[in-house]
Design a protein around this nucleic acid. Structure first.
Lengths: 189, 189
DNA sequence: CTCATTTGCATACTATAATATACTTTTTAG
DNA sequence: CTAAAAAGTATATTATAGTATGCAAATGAG
């Protein structure tokens, strides 16, 4: 097997093994319950397999656990180096966003940049809260119909579901940190 | 493609498409970012593919979203009929547990049954709370060193991390509902 | 409408996931 | 310690996921 994603496979395997052991059932029993061969189950648990969505599904059904549970784990320390890691550009290269820290569900972190004399609008799902910190320069933010002018290191928090616009009226790039918090896992999508 | 898990594949595809559309990037752009072929991405979005864990991983990395996000969705209404759906037996068939409702993370529901004149011990992770309701007969419960005798429809709540034992001293099966609540998603595994 | 972009689709090919079977090693229970 | 059960391994086979290419259909902007 390719050694590309060993760490991922190991994590998933560890999760499965832990759950199975907790239930005190053998590989063979699980094979019956899930209709996945004992060999495949073993390989997955040992991190030697790249299982199919269908197989993951069958295993989770066999254990009556949610599909995502096998794929949740502490991801290793993550470092995103400024200017090195890829980011998402806006349609006119007037802003970009680096999503940071692939934490699950309740919180997301972004590093963003708005080009001089440009703006960017968005809104998020109900129940989300957005917190931003301006890293440099000054930034105008419109939330609903209210405008706010923020300076370096100013922090602001608002309801994410309201349409909001980041406006950079200066002649320099403005950078900001941005975090989104959701009330509920199901609302992150 | 087999039509076995169409519903599952559709759900995952819908999630992916929604996220991609939200980011306003084309299939081709995502193909570049994720190193997954445009064709495969398209198939997944249309629910015509059974993607590999590796592929899911690459897609999520390309979008810098948590791996599990594509697999979280409202599962349909679930009905577990008593005595019909499979359950997990204890080592001596002296108890069995039906895990119910594949809800994610914070709460788990079980239906359990203890055979006459037998018992079952367990404990859970720190921070969990267990709530039980006796459905019929009477059940003795030992939590730590304290014993409690519960009768039909009695309800009891205790810290799941303490070792606890369900004891059925009667000559009839005792059924109970049981729920586990965790403080944190990461503690469910 | 028309053109350009994006998406869907068919075919053929390659890589590999999943299984069956049988055997070895490790773990567990008595 | 020994026997039995469980888990890991090897090989060969089958099924299918993933890709490349080229083209058709749908979508969207002007």
């Amino acid at each position: 097997m390719m050694e590309e994603n060993m760490e991922l496979y190991s994590q998933v395997g560890r999760n499965l093994r832990e759950i199975r052991r907790q239930r005190k059932i053998s590989l063979e029993e699980l094979a019956e319950k899930s209709n996945v061969s004992k060999l495949t189950l073993g390989k997955i648990e040992r991190g030697e397999a790249n299982p199919t969505l269908n197989i993951l599904w069958k295993i989770c059904r066999g254990l009556t656990i949610p599909l995502a549970s096998l794929l949740v784990f502490e991801e290793k320390t993550e470092v995103y180096r400024f200017g090195v890691d890829p980011h998402f550009n806006g349609p006119n290269n007037d802003w970009f966003v680096d999503p940071l820290f692939k934490t699950f569900g309740t919180m997301e972190w972004y590093r963003a940049c708005i080009e001089p004399n440009s703006e960017y609008s968005e809104f998020h799902l109900a129940g989300s809260e957005e917190t931003i910190l301006v890293l440099n320069g000054q930034l105008e933010i419109k939330v609903g119909k209210m405008h706010h002018l923020l300076h370096q290191w100013d922090v602001m928090k608002f309801k994410g579901e309201e349409m909001h616009t980041y406006i950079n009226r200066s002649d320099e790039k403005v950078h900001l940190m941005l975090s989104l918090t959701y009330k509920d896992v199901n609302q992150t999508l």
